[in-house]
Amino acid sequence: MKAELLYGACLAADMPAPRTRIDATHSDDVVLENVQVHYALFEVPMAAALACLPVSLHPAVPAHLGLTFWRCDGGPLGAFECAWIGLACRTGIKPRHLVHAAFVDRADVGDWLARRYGFDCRVADVHYRETYDRLQGRIVIDGQVLLDTVTTRMQPVVGAGASVKYSPALNATRVGDAALMVQMETAYAFKRVIRGTPQLPVYDAAALGNAQLVATFPMSGTHAVVDITLLPPRFTADFAVPAESGGAKKIAR
């Protein structure tokens, strides 16, 4: 029986043109110690998710998006805060978040993230804090709050490293002249994890890159203190050809 598979519905030609270009010669590992990571997930309508995923990617079912904040107080890139929003998807069978909005509070770090992994960061006031009773992440540009997320009812997660899985970010970018998707390559060493229930008091969907992707149901929000190893990018994914049909390729070095 010939089966119909579930893919995104956005033709490659209709995907936004990438505005970044990675430097595929990156081959070094970069270690960021004691990064505070906030990762909050919300379900979104499946129809909206399918409409903005390219035809080479499968959706996650149920459809959901992830908000990721990093607060790094020092290290090889200096102190910075960044955040990105991605739609859960699958390259073949592997969980990924296709990023449609990214923000950073320092332009030079934004440039580095663009060259390394294809993040298309806007400079913004990115502010993430853990307080005694909540996690709060906020993105502000020119005084306008684009996103405000609050996670409450926190509790510790035992055996943190074994139970926390961050789906890697997938960015639309250029590799050479080709428009492709590149995956952020990271390794995490967890030191502490707490989990709670996220809310989104402010989520300006249009300003955040996709007016259709509106959070409908909270899944989880976590705060972790993590040593992050940023590995060189290794794989590209095609907008038109699914991974299972050869659309995922290793970056040649």
Binding site: V157, K165, M219
Partner: peptide
């Protein structure tokens, strides 16, 4: 392979909701 494709789209607890009882 078909099973992998089908199961791949589901969202396992470990992907969605870190919990000590789903390691």
């Amino acid at each position: 392979a078909t099973f992998g494709y089908m199961a791949g789209q589901t969202v396992e607890i470990s992907e969605a909701y870190p919990a000590s009882n789903y390691t």
